[in-house]
Design a protein around this nucleic acid. Structure first.
Length: 863
RNA sequence: GCCGGGGUGGUGGAAUGGCAGACACGGGGGACUUAAAAUCCCCUUCCCAAAAGGAGUGAGGGUUCGACUCCCUCCCUCGGCACCA
C-alpha cells in the first residue's frame, strides 16, 4: 500500500521528515500560569507491557491528541501529558515469565511504548513524562502513605468549605479518659484503631496464582482475580488497610458536583452501597432465661419487628466463640462443623444452594423486647459476616430469605402486614411473603399504619427505648493496601519490638526498592523482600534500636491514585506538587479512560484527592471535572482482541501499512467514542481512499493556485464555514466519527470546484489536529512558512453566517409531499405561497393551519 | 431482583421534536484495461414488473401540526451490583 498505486501518498517519508522537524518545536508544551485559558486533558497512563501498545491505547490517545491539538489551535493552553504506570502485577508477571529483572523489563517496555506513541503522531508534553516506578516519583506515593498513617478522620469536624468531616493530624486526636487510665499501650492501641492507614489481621482475598492478597475491588463477581482469572481464596493475613470508608459520605455526595456519565455515578453509588437503618441489640439468654451476652442486628426494616421470630448470625461471627461455653457438647460441635463446611463452600456451591438455606441452632435465645418472646439464636451462611453487624433478626412473614430459613429450621412465622385487600391469613408459602406494601397488624402501636410510614415510627421508638441505634452502613470496605510481591512501592514503615510500627521519616524517603538476586515470590506466599536481609535491618526511627522494614509492597493502584498531580510539577524535590501550580491547572477538565476502572482507580483516586485536599495540599475536593469512558475495539471477528483468538490487530502493522494519519482518522471514524465496535480493515481502506483523494486534489490545486484569486461569496466558502461550525460543535461532544464524515462530505461536494488559496489554507489548519502529517506536508506544498500546528484557527460566529438558498420540505399533515428551494431568510408569506404551489393536489380543499419553522420545514394541517 | 446503557438497511453507524438511513464498508451495473489491480460514473431500506403509491427506526399505546427523538406499558440485549438484612 506504500504508494504503489501512484497515489502520491508516501507516508513513510512524510512521517519521518516531520517527526524529525517537530522534535525541536515543542508543539505540545504546556505553560504554567499562561494567560490563555487552560485545558487539562487527561488520558489514563498505561502500564507498559512487553507486548507493546494495543489498539485500545491508540484509540484512547489518538482521540484526545486530536482534542488537545484542536484546542491549541483555538488558543487554549493545553496540558496533555503521558507517563508510565510501571509498578504492578502485569509488569512483574511478565518479568518472571521472561526471566529478567522487572527494572529491565519495564525500561524496555517503556522504550517501545514511547516509540509507538511518537509514531502515531501523538503530541504529548514529553517534558512532563513520569514513571511511577522511579524513586523520584514513588517517594511521594510513600509520603502519601505516611500522611495517611499520621492522620485520623474526624467525622464531625466543620470544614472550611461548609461540609462536615476532615482528616486531622494524630496529635489532634482526643484520647478518652477511660483509655488514658488504662495506660500507654491502651493509648497506642486506641490511636492505631483511628489511623487512616492501619494494620489489621483479616481474611482477605488471595490469588493463588499471583501469590498475593487482593482488594475486594480486584475480585470479580464470579470470584476470580480481575487480572489473571484465577479463583481467589480467603486467607487470614496481617495487612495494611486504608480507611476509605471514612470518606464514603463525601465520595457519594460530591458525585453530584461532577460531570461523569450516569453509569459511572450509578456504579460508584452501587459500590459504596449506602443503607440507612437501625442496629438493635438483643440480650442473649439461655433456655431458662439467664442473660449471658448481647447481640446486635442491623435492619433497615424494623417496623416488622413484632413479627421477628429468630436471630441468625454468620458462621464467622465472633460471638459464637464466646457463647460456646453455654452450649452442650453436641451443639458446640455442630456449630463448629457448620462453620468449617461453609468456609469451604465455593461461590458456585453457594449459588447452587440457591433458595435452600442451611443452618444450625445454638440452643440459645434472643429476647424480643417488643413482644417479650424468646427467639431462637441460629447460625447460617446466608448471613454475611462483613455486612452490617454480621447478624440479622429474622422476620419470616415479610422477608423471603427469612421465610426460606424458617421453613428449613421449623421456626414460627407471624404475619404483621396485610396483603392487598386486607388479607390476614396465615403465611404458609413463599408467594404470600409481603415485602414492599401493606398495612401493619399485630404490631401494637403501629397497627393500621402503612408499612413505610411505620419504618420511621419504629426507628424513633427503638431509639427512645434505648433498644436500638439509628445507623448508616456501607457495602464497600476499607481498602486492603498490602501486596506480597516484589514489583511495587515499598511500604515506608518500620517495625520495632519496643515501639511497634513507625513511619520512615520524611528525610529518609524514598525507601528504595532493593535489587534482588531472586525476585520471585515465595511459594508460601511470603513477600520476596523477606530475602533482602540487609535492606530489612534498620534502626528504629523512634528509639534507635533494632527494627525491621515492612516487606509487603503497595498495590498497583498506589501510584496511579495521584499521578495527574505529578504531571503538573514533575521535578519538584520538596513537594508532591507546588500549590500555586496545582491551583492553576486543577481540576482535570476532561478525563478519558476505561469503564473497568470505575470502582477501582476512579474511586480510589477521588478518595486520595479528598485526603490531600484535607491536608491542604491540593485545591478543591474533586480531581476530575468531567469524565468520559471509552469503549472497546473488538477483533475483526467481533470478539474481544486476544492472543488466544488470534485476532489481535497490531498497531505497528497497521501504521506501517496505512500510515499514522489514516489509522488516526479510522480510529475516529470507527464509531462513537464510547462504542464497542469491531476493527474492520475494509473501512480503513475507505479512510485511506479519502486521504489519497484529498492529497491528489490539493496538490493539483496548489500548483495551479493563483494567490490573488478572490475567495468571494461562492459555495466553497460557505461550505467551509459550515464545516468549521460542525467540527467545532462536534469536538466538544467528542463526536469524532461525524467530524471525519463531515470532512469526507466536504471533499465529495467540492471535489470538482477550484479551491482558492485562502480556502486551502484554512482547510489545512482545520484538518491538522485530525491528520497532522498530511496537513503539515500540504502546508509546505502550499508554500506556507512555519508549522500548520502553530496557526490560529478562526471560526466565525454562527450568527454571521451568510444567508443562502436551501431546500425546505413541504409537509401536509406531517407527511413529506414536496420540496421547495428558498432563501434561508425568506419571509413566511413567501414560503407559504411557494409551498402551496409546490403541492397543489394535497391542498385543493384548502387548509386549516400552516406551521412554518424557518430553515426546518413548512407543514399544512388539513382536516 | 436492583441500578445504568443500548435496540435504526446486508455491515459499522448518521439524524435528540422538523426531509429517517449522512459518511463509510459490502453488493449490483457500467467505463477504462489484452487482463487484473487501482481509479471513475450510476444504483443499492422494504413491498409492487415499473411508475404512482404504500410501509418502515424492538412491540403496543399516548402527547404533538409533526416522534428514531418526549411520556406510559412490555420484550430483547450489553454492563455494574447482588442470600446486602
Amino acid at each position: 500500500m506504500k504508494d504503489t498505486s501512484g497515489s502520491g501518498y508516501d507516508f513513510v517519508s512524510i512521517q519521518k521528515k516531520w517527526n524529525e522537524r517537530w522534535e525541536g518545536l515543542s508543539l505540545a508544551r504546556a505553560e504554567d500560569f499562561s494567560q490563555k485559558p487552560k485545558l487539562y486533558a487527561l488520558v489514563e497512563l498505561p502500564y507498559p507491557s512487553g507486548s507493546g501498545l494495543h489498539m485500545g491505547h491508540c484509540w484512547n490517545y489518538a482521540l484526545f491528541d486530536t482534542y488537545s491539538r484542536f484546542h491549541r489551535l483555538l488558543g487554549y493552553n493545553v496540558l496533555y501529558p503521558m507517563g508510565w504506570d510501571a509498578f504492578g502485577l502485569p509488569t512483574y508477571n511478565h518479568a518472571i515469565k521472561v526471566g529478567k529483572d522487572p527494572h529491565e523489563v519495564s525500561a524496555e517496555s517503556i522504550t517501545t511504548f514511547r516509540r509507538q506513541l511518537k509514531e502515531l503522531g501523538l503530541a504529548f508534553d514529553w517534558e512532563r513524562e513520569i514513571d511511577s516506578s522511579s524513586p523520584e516519583y514513588y517517594k511521594w506515593t510513600q509520603w502519601i502513605f505516611v500522611q495517611l498513617y499520621e492522620h485520623w478522620y474526624d467525622g464531625t469536624f466543620a470544614r472550611k468549605d461548609g461540609g462536615v468531616g476532615q482528616a486531622r493530624p494524630m496529635s489532634d486526636l482526643p484520647i478518652p479518659d477511660e483509655v488514658r487510665q488504662k495506660g500507654e499501650s491502651a493509648i497506642t492501641e486506641y490511636k492505631d484503631a483511628k489511623r487512616l492507614a492501619f494494620k489489621k489481621k483479616m481474611p482477605v482475598s488471595w490469588c493463588p496464582k499471583c501469590k498475593t492478597g487482593l482488594a475486594n475491588e480486584e475480585v470479580l463477581g464470579d470470584g476470580t482475580h480481575e487480572r489473571c482469572g484465577t479463583l481467589v481464596e480467603k486467607r487470614d493475613l496481617e495487612q495494611w488497610m486504608l480507611r476509605i470508608t471514612a470518606y464514603a459520605e463525601r465520595l457519594l455526595a460530591d458525585l453530584d458536583t461532577v460531570d461523569f456519565p450516569n453509569g459511572v455515578k450509578a456504579a460508584q453509588k452501587n459500590w459504596i452501597g449506602k443503607k440507612y437503618g437501625v442496629n438493635i441489640t438483643y440480650d442473649v439468654v439461655t433456655e431458662d432465661g439467664q442473660k449471658v451476652s448481647e447481640v446486635t442486628c442491623f435492619t433497615s426494616r424494623p417496623e416488622t419487628n413484632f413479627g421477628a421470630t429468630f436471630v441468625v448470625v454468620a458462621p464467622e461471627h465472633a460471638i459464637l466463640e464466646e457463647l460456646g461455653q453455654y452450649m452442650d457438647e453436641v451443639t458446640k460441635k455442630n456449630v463448629l462443623e457448620y462453620k468449617n463446611t461453609s468456609a469451604r463452600k465455593t461461590k458456585e456451591q453457594r449459588e447452587a444452594e440457591g433458595k435452600k438455606k442451611t443452618g444450625v441452632n445454638t440452643g440459645l435465645y434472643c429476647l424480643n423486647q417488643l413482644t417479650g418472646t424468646k427467639m431462637p439464636l441460629c447460625v447460617s451462611d446466608f448471613v454475611l459476616v462483613d455486612f452490617g453487624t454480621g447478624a440479622l433478626v429474622g422476620v419470616p412473614g415479610h422477608d423471603l430469605r427469612d421465610f426460606q430459613f424458617a421453613q428449613v429450621m421449623n421456626l414460627p412465622v407471624v404475619r404483621v402486614v396485610t396483603t392487598e385487600g386486607g388479607d390476614e391469613s396465615e403465611i404458609t408459602q413463599e408467594s404470600q411473603v409481603q415485602e414492599e406494601s401493606g398495612v401493619m397488624i399485630n404490631s401494637g402501636f403501629l397497627d393500621g399504619m402503612e408499612i413505610h410510614e411505620a419504618t420511621t415510627k419504629m426507628m424513633d421508638y427503638l431509639e427512645e427505648k434505648g433498644w436500638g441505634k439509628k445507623i448508616t452502613v456501607y457495602r464497600f470496605h476499607d481498602w486492603v493496601f498490602s501486596r506480597q510481591h516484589y514489583w511495587g512501592e515499598p511500604t515506608p514503615m518500620v517495625h520495632c519490638e519496643q515501639c511497634g510500627w513507625n513511619p520512615v521519616p520524611m528525610n529518609q524517603l524514598p525507601v528504595t526498592l532493593p535489587k534482588l538476586a531472586d525476585y520471585r515470590m515465595g511459594e508460601d506466599g511470603s513477600s520476596p523482600l523477606e530475602k533482602a536481609d540487609e535492606w530489612i535491618q534498620v534502626s528504629c526511627p523512634s528509639c534507635g534500636g533494632k527494627a525491621r522494614r515492612e516487606t509487603d509492597v503497595m498495590p498497583n493502584w498506589a501510584g496511579s491514585n495521584w499521578y495527574f498531580l505529578r504531571y503538573l510539577d514533575p521535578h519538584n524535590k520538596e513537594k508532591l506538587v507546588d500549590q500555586t501550580i496545582a491551583s492553576y491547572w486543577m481540576p482535570v477538565d476532561i478525563y478519558y479512560g476505561g469503564q473497568e476502572h470505575v470502582t477501582l482507580h476512579l474511586l480510589y483516586s477521588r478518595f486520595i484527592y479528598k485526603f490531600l485536599s484535607d491536608l491542604g495540599a491540593v485545591p478543591g475536593v474533586e480531581p476530575y471535572k468531567q469524565r468520559r469512558n471509552h469503549g472497546i475495539i473488538l477483533g475483526p471477528d467481533n470478539r474481544k482482541m486476544s492472543k488466544s483468538w488470534g485476532n489481535v490487530v497490531n498497531p505497528d502493522e497497521v501504521v506501517g501499512k496505512f500510515g499514522a494519519d489514516v489509522v488516526r482518522l479510522y480510529l475516529m471514524f470507527i464509531g462513537p467514542y464510547e462504542s464497542v465496535t469491531p476493527w474492520n480493515e475494509r473501512s480503513v481502506i475507505g479512510v485511506h481512499r479519502f486521504v489519497v483523494k484529498l492529497i491528489k486534489k490539493l496538490k493539483k490545486e496548489c500548483t495551479v493556485v493563483n494567490r490573488d484569486k478572490e475567495v468571494g461569496e461562492n459555495g466553497i466558502s460557505i461550505g467551509l464555514s459550515r464545516l468549521k461550525q460542525r467540527v467545532r460543535g462536534d469536538i466538544v461532544l467528542l463526536k469524532f466519527n461525524t467530524i471525519v464524515a463531515s470532512f469526507m462530505e466536504f471533499l465529495n461536494t467540492y471535489e470538482k470546484n477550484p479551491w482558492p488559496y485562502e480556502i486551502i489554507k484554512e482547510f489545512l489548519i482545520l484538518l491538522s489536529p485530525f491528520a497532522p502529517y498530511v496537513s503539515e506536508e500540504l502546508w509546505e506544498v502550499l508554500g506556507e512558512k512555519g508549522s500548520v500546528h502553530q496557526q490560529e484557527l478562526k471560526i466565525a460566529d454562527v450568527t454571521q453566517e451568510v444567508h443562502s438558498e436551501i431546500d425546505l420540505p413541504v409537509m401536509v399533515n406531517g407527511k413529506l409531499r414536496a420540496k421547495i428551494s428558498v432563501m434561508s431568510n425568506a419571509t413566511e408569506a413567501d414560503v407559504v405561497t411557494l409551498a402551496t404551489q409546490a403541492a397543489p393536489q394535497y391542498l385543493s380543499q384548502g387548509y386549516a393551519k400552516v406551521i412554518y419553522v424557518p430553515g426546518k420545514a413548512v407543514n399544512f394541517v388539513v382536516r
